[in-house]
Amino acid sequence: MTTVFGVPIQALFSQLLVGLINGSFYALLSLGLAIIFGLLNIVNFAHGALYMLGALTAWLLLEHFGIGYWPALILSPLVVGLFGAVIERTMLKRIRGLDPIYGLLLTFGLALVIQGVARNYFGVSGEPYEMPPQLSGGKNLGFMFLPNYRGWVVLVSVVICGLTWFVIERTRVGSYLRASTENPLLVQAFGINVPRLITLTYGLGVALAALAGVMAAPIYRVSPLMGADLIIVVFAVVVIGGMGSIFGSILTGFALGVIEGLTKVYYPEASNTVVFVIMALVLLVKPAGLFGRTA
């Protein structure tokens, strides 16, 4: 059998694919973060908690209302997105224009509160969430067994990331958004309701996190700490990609998933730290991140 550095090529392929799957989650989450930072200048530390809230909402819908996975895929981001809009209206709005550190502290506090409340009611071990029957099972690709659900995760992630990028960079609504971050006063003068636009944007970023949460629920457990475990890595992804660069964070998300996957083959002990090593290296060479525009 052909080997690459002592690892059979088949095993290598399967690890690459697994890396791509993890990368899908990184991409979805860092996309939301990048939008919120790029357009609103808020370092949204509550992102992990909101991702958890997305999964938890899906679980609650199933447990208490018998609403399954497919409707939850729409409903949960909607509910959590709305919750995000409320947060923006009642709290974040008041600290607009202040140093980003205030937003960071506020959202970090929010994350702790949300996680604490969830932990109080649900414990830390988490609750199981069944995979939808249409997506259980898997295909034998020859070099590995690919669970259908994981394939679905990659597909959804690519489509959603592509769509979001397109809306923000290539459509009229997107241009309003970008313009209102450049010069809110001028855009307001053209008759566009900037505060509402900002609320909607924050809601959208949060909804993306919730969507990732619902996608993650059948793979991992629905547990109050699921977001806390992930958020630091995702922040590293955003920093590597360049704070606020939407395209950069999508690409870096997928790429880092793959790199992490390879680390798990060659030196598994380092798999939790490799992302941060890369972050340090990138910051040394390009302080603005790989795709960042300003330093």
Partner: peptide, 20 residues
């Protein structure tokens, strides 16, 4: 055997090694 970090989020890659 494969050593994984404490509190790892994803085990699929370690399991694939176990599988092979």
């Amino acid at each position: 055997s494969v050593l994984h970090p404490l509190n790892a989020s994803d085990f699929s890659s370690f399991l694939l090694q176990a599988q092979s």
